[in-house]
Design a binder for these strands. Structure first.
Lengths: 152, 152
DNA sequence: TAAAATGTAATATGTAACATTACATGATAC
DNA sequence: GTATCATGTAATGTTACATATTACATTTTA
């Protein structure tokens, strides 16, 4: 997820489509991996792809209209918590007691995370980014190309 | 963690030491796995082991004096969240913005979980278990042996 | 038509969690 | 004192899963 947000923000900073190859270099992964992830986001309408020369990926909505929760859902709502609250043997009363206590705590933590995700849009992240850029003494002339930040 | 709590409660219900072999069957795993985990808990003083005939594992403290957080710490405080908030390239301002937003949410969720862990003792879980047993119409005569609940 | 890009299936690789084997050590019963 | 039962632990094997790669088809534009 962190990686996907990373890529999306880079796309937002870039005029025109960005190729899978360039995005892959920024995340130090393979272009095919990018295409697979983006294909899912495209189906939900968050990004768009263009083939052929001059093609690539671009964002299909306004940044303020995409929340972190949207992205989370778009990538299939993967598990947020590491310790699976397994209920191997629901007939075992000991296990039921354990599941009851842990389950509530885990559910609450998950709900907290999702609520936070809902509060934050890509526009917020973009604003944070630009604030950081000002703080670093850069201005708009300093091209924020993927290459300049992530190396060739 | 859920598995360890499971084993500890079973030990608590059992008079006298329980062997690794029996515990392993209850968790459908290998006795050596049990020994490795329990060895860690023993170093922290939560359980004790006895060798030789009639030996096995037993709980070394009162249940009310062991919180879920104690157990969590005793097993090495493994990661609670599934999505690692990776900071591959802290020089990248985009990544910093993403880490900032996600990191806060993750930290808060983690803190919530730990706080909950601290509130619950093994005695609480044991009480839940006995409550469930009453509800199921059992009484103390119904032996709560590992075998009866988990199969041979 | 050549080159550049995505689309996607099939396969490979890395790796972390878990399981197993094998053998050593200590404790108890007879 | 020896046979048996139990833990202690190192070394190794297995599985599952996420990620990466290859290969080739398709679409688009110059």
């Amino acid at each position: 997820m962190s990686g996907i947000l990373h890529v999306l923000l880079h796309m937002a900073e870039h005029d025109g489509p960005v190729t899978s190859e360039v995005l892959a270099k920024a995340m130090s992964t393979n272009p095919v991996v990018i295409r697979r992830i983006m294909a899912g986001l495209r189906e939900q309408g968050y990004v768009r792809s263009e083939k052929g020369r001059g093609g690539g990926w671009s964002i299909a909505r306004r940044l303020a209209d995409i929340t972190l929760r949207d992205i989370y859902a778009a990538i299939g709502s993967p598990p947020l918590l590491a310790m699976a609250n397994r209920s191997d043997n629901p007939a075992c009363l000991v296990e039921r007691a354990v599941n009851g206590a842990l389950g509530k705590a885990f559910d609450d933590a998950e709900a907290l995370l999702l609520a936070r995700f809902e509060e934050v849009t890509l526009a917020d992240l973009s604003a944070d980014f630009h604030a950081g850029m000002n703080k670093a003494g850069m201005n708009k002339k300093d091209t924020v190309s993927l290459e300049s930040v992530h190396g060739s």
